[in-house]
Each structure stands twice: as C-alpha cells, then as structure tokens.
Design a protein around this nucleic acid. Sequence first.
DNA 1: GGGTGTGAACGGATTCACAGCA
DNA 2: TGCTGTGAATCCGTTCACACCC
Lengths: 215, 215
Amino acid sequence: MISEKTVERLSLYRRILCQLRAEGRESILSHELAALLHGKAAQVRRDFMQLGYSGVPNSGYNVRRLIESISDLLDSPRMQGAALVGLGHLGLAILSHFSGRWRQLAIRAAFDTDPAKVNRTHHGCRCYAMDDLAPVVREQNIDIGVIAVPAEQAQGVAEALCRAGISGILNFAPVRLRLPDTVYVDTVDLTMSLEKVAYFARQRVSARHQANTAV
Amino acid sequence: MISEKTVERLSLYRRILCQLRAEGRESILSHELAALLHGKAAQVRRDFMQLGYSGVPNSGYNVRRLIESISDLLDSPRMQGAALVGLGHLGLAILSHFSGRWRQLAIRAAFDTDPAKVNRTHHGCRCYAMDDLAPVVREQNIDIGVIAVPAEQAQGVAEALCRAGISGILNFAPVRLRLPDTVYVDTVDLTMSLEKVAYFARQRVSARHQANTAV
DNA sequence: GGGTGTGAACGGATTCACAGCA
DNA sequence: TGCTGTGAATCCGTTCACACCC
C-alpha cells in the first residue's frame, strides 16, 4: 500500500523531526521540511497525506504528533528483533551503529564462524556459532536478518535465515540473493555505490569544465 | 545522459559478466542475464542499447566485449582515486572491501583524527591526519571522497573535501549533506535501510498470514 | 524459430496548481 | 494572506510488442 520510496522518506523525516524536537521546535511547515530533505513541499505534504496525518493551514505540522504518527506506521507494535550474521569489520560497524539506539528494533544476536568470536559479547551483543542460528532466531523471536559475510557465503546464509523463519533481510554482500518472495530483501551494494559515484563525479567534472569554457 | 538506475545496473551486469567470463562463458542472451538480475529481458537490451553495444540475434552478447564496453563507460580513462575519511569499523570495512580490487578506481588515502591511527598503514592504505587532507587530495589526484565519520562531523568533513576539490562523495553518515551541486553526492543510510526492511518484513508476515487464512 | 533493437504503451512517482481553510 | 490537501498534468523508468535479422 505505501511505497518503498515513501517509507524511506518517512524514516528520514522522523530522524530530522526528532532533532527538531530536541531543539525545542514545536511545529514545522511542509516547505521547511522539504528544504531540509532537498525535496519539494508538495512531496512532503503527499507523504503525510498517505500517513493520514493532517497539518493545520498557516501553522503547519505539530512536530511531536507527527513523530508519533510516523512511528505508528514504521515501528512494530510488538518489538522486532534482528540477527546479524558475520562479525568482520562491517558486522562490527553495523553493530556499533545500531547498538542500543532503538527500542522497537534491536540487533539481538550475532553469528560468526570464527571460534574466537563465538560466545563472547561484542558491542553489547552476544555472538553465537552458526549452528545455533535456527534455535536462537526462534527463541529470541527474531524476524529480520542482516547479512555481512563475504559474497561466497551470502546465499547459504540467506537460505539458513529463511529456514529459521525470518521475513526480511538486509544484505551487504555483493550478490543478488535468490529467495522465495515471502521474504523482503534489500541489498546495499558498496561496490555499485562507489562505481556510481565515480561515474557521476566524472560527469560533473566535465560539466563544470564545459560551463567554464562556454563563458 | 545515462540515468542513475541504468548506471547501477551496468555495474551489476559487469560484475556478473566477469564471473561468467571466469567460468569460461563466451556469450549470453538478454533473458539469461535478466534472470540473474531478477529483471526483464527488455530492460537488459535497452541498457545495452544505451551503451551502444549491439548483440547478435540468436547468439546474444559476447561476454568479453560487453565487459569492455561497460568498462569504457564506467571506468575513467585516467585512474580515479578516492579518499576515505574516518577509520572506525565502518571505514576499515570499506577499506578492506575495496583494497586492491580495481585498477581504475582505488582508495589512495585514509584520514582520521585518532593519533593512534595516523601515519600507519591499514589494509595497505596510508592514514593521514585531517590537516593533511587538502594537500594529499591534490598531490594524489583524488576526486572522490568517502565519508565514514559520525553524523555530527559529516557536514564539516564534506565541506573540507569540497574545498580540497573533490567532485563526488559517497556518504555513510546519516545526514543529508548540504553542498554545492557541482559535487555529486550519494548517501548510504544504514538506519533508513534497516527501518525499511523492518517495515516491509512486517507487511510480508501479515500478507502470508492473510494468504493462509484466506484458504 | 528464436533472438535483438526499438517505437509505443504503460505505470508509478513527482510536481503543478488551485480550492478550501485558519 | 499563506498555508494545507489533493485532482490533474507531467516526467521518467519499465515493459510490451513487433519489425528485422541470423
């Protein structure tokens, strides 16, 4: 019902709104929020329309209520747990990034094949052996998997997570996962992102050069 | 001229094609490639059309030539260099991910404020103090910046990179950077990605449940 | 026959533009 | 007056469908 793009923006709105609230701001206009997001005011209004939250003409949106409204949509009524597989640098980065920040969504367990990491706590999160994946996922009521293992192992790990009953995966391995479409998959591909930046950076350079010579 | 989405896919095509080449595969049909990408054949053909590379009816595309053709577009004729700012777990993850993998695009220098990291080599990459950013960027002919610092410092780092003359930024900090539009910016937002997965994972669960009860 | 290349149709997301309201 | 909510228009990416070629 609500589109992927809209959900992404709602997540960003919420983050910005929380900052504003912390600064004591009580209300905000659509075009102010748009400016902060590099978007257009109409888009902001349409997103909130989908949310079902209404603002007030001339005084805008109430920051606190808007945050609540977005949270009603984005957060699960019951706690959602995530499992992280792979405790290399990337896994550790993810762990420290998410450690203890959200109440409604937390990484509850980590998994790795390295015996030196297993049965220890990293950034406040216990690391288990891969064999324990299914039981731990079930016991801790985990329904999201985060994959931070090398490309070769990603497909296997993804399948194991699915068998354990997970319903969403955030994948950092540079592979297109083949999974039943009962699970939602989002892949963050660092290589692709860097190549994209490299390409468009070059375009900007030549555009700049062109503009200079055109004058 | 060529869209962002298309560039993303070209990057993925190339990776898959390189694997195929390594396996000794000489040619491939549009619908085979589409299947590997979870896309449609028409899309693949259209992407290659934009590239200006033509296949042959009934025998498809020559793998080696196609890779060359994509590389002509994506890779810079002269080497492109990148600078990484922030050597926390995320920075190290990025460094090890990209270390020595590409000839046309490499991370040439890293920067951090921590004196324990400065003037040492990490994953084959020298770490400099932040003060050296501008001179090193200029000397090493770097035109891409990768930001892997905490949110609070990201804007400042981004501005410093711009002043040093960079033309593209890959940003991992959860902030919308405000920069002149002469630089291309792509932000990879882990928090947003995870929240998105969490949301759609929930939707899948209820969809599954609905399907079960509907029968 | 079974591919490719591509104009045309489609669909979803964004933006415009304006009615309605404080 | 200056904002919000929203139908209508527009834009852009994707997909269809078919002419053309091996």
